[in-house]
Nucleic acid binder design. Structure first.
Lengths: 364, 364
DNA sequence: TCTTGAAAATAAAACGTTTTACGAAACTGG
DNA sequence: CCAGTTTCGTAAAACGTTTTATTTTCAAGA
C-alpha cells in the first residue's frame, strides 16, 4: 500500500471506475495476482489475498464482464428468444429460465420478436453476436426458417413450446395433441357433438397440434369440430365469438386453445345470456389462477410450464457439456382440471334452436 | 481475395468463429477498414465496402459484442432488477422495457431477486459488473438499502413501481394513494362503512401508500378500515379471507390491493355463499383481462403500466444523455373501471346505514 | 554453503474490437 | 510541375481481463 489510495481519477478530474490495475496498485501486488485471488485459481498467500480483498472493497471494484468474457473465451450469457414477453406462458417460462440460468452461472439475454416473423432472424443474429453459450427459442415463425442460422453456427439450441415439424434440434414442449384429444374425448363422453374450437392463430405449431388432437377425439363419432380464429386480443375475440355463438348451428361446447380465448368465450356467453355450463360448456388450454376463482370455475388443460423450462434448460446444459447424441423431441404430459364450466349438454330437440337464456326453468 | 477462403479452422480442425481479421484477410483489406465499413464511421470506397460485405456474408461474421463493448467503452446493456418476473405487473413492465431498450440500441439484462431482499445488493453488483449504461429497479427491499451502491457508483438509475420514501433517485410510479382514496371514497358514497383491505405484504411501499389512501378516504366518516394480510399465494390467501369473512363483523366491501387477492376474495365469497355484490362488494387494484370477463365483472383500479415503463425509460435516457437536474418523483394517475362487483350494501338491521350514492331503487 | 525443487508472484501476451495517428495517393489551383 | 489540400487506407495502440511462461523466493536436503 505505497501510494495511489482512493478512487482513481481521470485527467478531467471525474472519478473513473477502478480496474484491476488500480486494485493491484493499491494492494501492492501484480494484476495477475489480483485475478488469481478473485478467481481462486492459483494458490496465493493468505496475507496477499487479504490485501487484495481489502483493496477490492476500498475501490468497490467489480470485474468487467465484457473484458473477462473476451479473454477467457467462455460465454457468460444464454439467449432466450420468445415471440412475446407479454404472453403469460412466455412470461412464466422466462421467469423460470432466468433463475435456472443464474444458478448455472449464466445471465439471460432476452430478445422478443413481438410476434413478427420478419424480425426473428435478426434477433437471432444479435444473440449470436453476444456469443451466447446456448440459445433457447420459442419460434415465432411456424416454419422457423431461422433455424438454419443456428444449425450453421453450431450453437447449442433448444426449441421450446412452439415446435415446428421435422426439426433437427432438441425440442421440449407439451403433448398438445394428446391433451386436446383427452379434453375433447371427455366432452364427447358427456354428450357434446357440436364443439367449437377457438384458436388464436392456426399457423402456430402447438395450436395446430391441439386442433389435430381435438379432431382425432371426434373421429368415429357423429359430431363435428368447428374451428374459429379469434386472434390474440380479448376485445375483438369476444366480438368474433359473440357473432359466431349468436347464429345456428350453436355449439354445445367451446374448447378454447388459449386463456384469452376462454375469457372471450365467457364474455360472449354472458352477452348472449348463454349460461355456462347449462347452455354452453367450456374447456380451455392454459390453466390460470382466475379459472379456479371465477363463477363457474373453468375447466382447463394445465401445461407444466415450469417442467418445460427445467427440461429445456437441462437439455441445453447437456449440449453445453458436449453431449453429441441425436436431437430429441420431448413432450411432457398435461393434466386436465375438470371444473364446473363443463357439463353434459341439455337435452333438446335436435334442431329446435330457441329457448336460450336461463335454462333451468323453461324446459320442464 | 488472395487466399484463406472459407471458414477459418483451429489446429484441431474444428471450425472456429470468424473474427474481424479473417474478414479482412478474405476481403483483402485491413481490419480497420472492415470496422469502418461495418460501423459506417469513416468513408470507404464503394468497391472495398462491397468486398467487405461479401466477406462478412461468406464467413457469416458477427461482431463480438464483448470485444466491441470493451473497446468503445460504451455500454451496450441496460439492467433491469425486479422482485419477481412471474408477477404479471413486472412481466408486463419487462416486456415493455425490453422493446424500448432495443429501440434505443441496448439489450436488456434482467435480474430478479425472487422477492429475496438479501439477494438484491448482489444482483445489483452483477449488473454493475456488466457495466450497464443504466439500471431500472423495482426494489424488493422496502427500504432499498442497496440504493447506496447505485449512488456511490454514480450509475444512472430509475426506481420503478415500488418507491421507498425519501430517495434521491429518479422515481416513476403510479399515484397509489390517490387511486386508493378515490376507490374507497366511492365505496363510502355507496354506503359501505366496514371495508376490508386485503394486502399481499404491507411492507411494500406501493401497498403502504394504497392503505394510507384507503384510510384517508374514510376519515371523517363513521366507518372503519380493516387491513388483512393474505400473502401472495392464491390458495392460502383464499383460506385466510374465508376465515375472516366467516365471522363478524363481516365487512360489506373488500378492497383488494393485488389481483391475486381479488381472486382469493372471489373464491372465499363463493365458498361462503356470499353473493357478490349483493352481500359483498369488491374493488381491486391491478386491472387484468379476466376482471371484465367474469361474472360478475370486477371493478378495478387500472395502473398504466405501459406508461410507467415508457416514462421510466425516458427518464433513464435523459440521465444517460447527461441531464443533471434534481431527482424527480413522477406519479402517473390511475383510472378506475367500475363494474358490477360493486354496489350499495344491502340494508340490514344491525347497522342501518343510510344509503347514499346511487340510491335509485331501495330508498323509494 | 550450495544445490534442488517446489511454491509463489509476476511480466507479457492474448482475446477481438475500435480509434488514433499517420502515410500514401489523389486531387486542386497556381 | 509543384505546393497545398483532401481523401482513403492502415499500422499500431488501447480497452480490462486471464493465462502462459518466466522469474523470484524460500525451505529443505546434501
Amino acid at each position: 500500500m505505497k501510494r495511489g489510495q482512493g478512487r482513481p481519477e481521470r485527467r478531467d478530474g471525474r472519478s473513473r471506475r477502478a480496474n484491476i490495475k488500480d486494485v493491484a496498485r493499491v494492494a501492492g501486488v501484480s494484476p495477475a495476482t489480483v485475478s488469481n485471488v478473485l478467481i481462486g485459481r492459483s494458490s496465493v498467500a493468505a496475507t496477499l489475498a487479504e490485501r487484495v480483498h481489502k483493496a477490492v472493497a476500498e475501490l468497490s471494484y467489480r470485474t468487467d464482464v465484457a473484458a473477462s468474457t473476451l479473454r477467457r473465451r467462455q460465454p457468460s450469457v444464454i439467449g432466450l428468444l420468445v415471440p412475446d414477453m407479454g404472453n403469460p406462458v412466455f412470461a412464466t417460462l422466462t421467469a423460470r429460465i432466468e433463475v435456472l440460468a443464474r444458478q448455472a452461472g449464466y445471465r439471460l439475454i432476452i430478445a422478443s420478436t413481438a410476434e413478427s416473423i420478419a424480425d426473428e432472424a435478426e434477433e437471432l443474429r444479435t444473440l449470436i453476436g453476444w456469443r451466447a453459450a446456448g440459445i433457447l427459442v420459442a419460434p415465432t415463425d411456424p416454419a422457423f426458417a431461422a433455424r438454419d442460422l443456428l444449425i450453421a453456427e453450431g450453437i447449442p439450441a433448444v426449441v421450446v413450446d412452439r415446435i415446428p415439424a421435422g426439426l433437427s434440434l432438441d425440442c421440449v414442449g407439451v403433448n398438445n395433441a394428446a391433451a386436446a384429444q383427452a379434453a375433447v374425448a371427455r366432452l364427447v363422453d358427456l354428450g357434446h357433438r357440436r364443439i367449437l374450437v377457438a384458436v388464436s392463430d392456426p399457423a402456430i405449431p402447438s395450436i395446430r397440434e391441439r386442433i389435430a388432437g381435438a379432431r382425432a377425439a371426434l373421429r368415429g363419432h357423429a359430431g363435428e369440430i368447428d374451428v374459429i380464429v379469434v386472434g390474440r386480443v380479448l376485445g375483438s375475440a369476444a366480438e368474433i365469438l359473440e357473432a359466431r355463438l349468436a347464429c345456428p348451428p350453436v355449439p354445445t361446447a367451446v374448447f378454447s386453445l388459449t386463456s384469452t380465448a376462454a375469457l372471450a368465450t365467457l364474455r360472449a356467453a354472458r352477452r348472449l345470456e348463454l349460461p355456462v355450463p347449462a347452455a354452453l360448456s367450456l374447456v380451455s388450454f392454459d390453466d390460470t389462477d382466475w379459472m379456479e376463482a371465477v363463477e363457474p370455475t373453468v375447466s382447463a388443460v394445465r401445461q407444466p410450464i415450469g417442467a418445460v423450462a427445467e427440461t429445456a434448460f437441462a437439455r441445453l446444459l447437456a449440449r453445453l457439456g458436449g453431449e453429441q447424441s441425436e436431437s430429441c423431441d420431448i413432450r411432457l404430459a398435461c393434466s386436465i382440471e375438470w371444473r364446473r364450466s363443463t357439463a353434459a349438454p341439455e337435452l333438446r330437440e335436435p334442431e329446435r334452436m330457441p329457448a336460450r337464456g336461463r335454462s333451468n326453468v323453461r324446459e320442464s
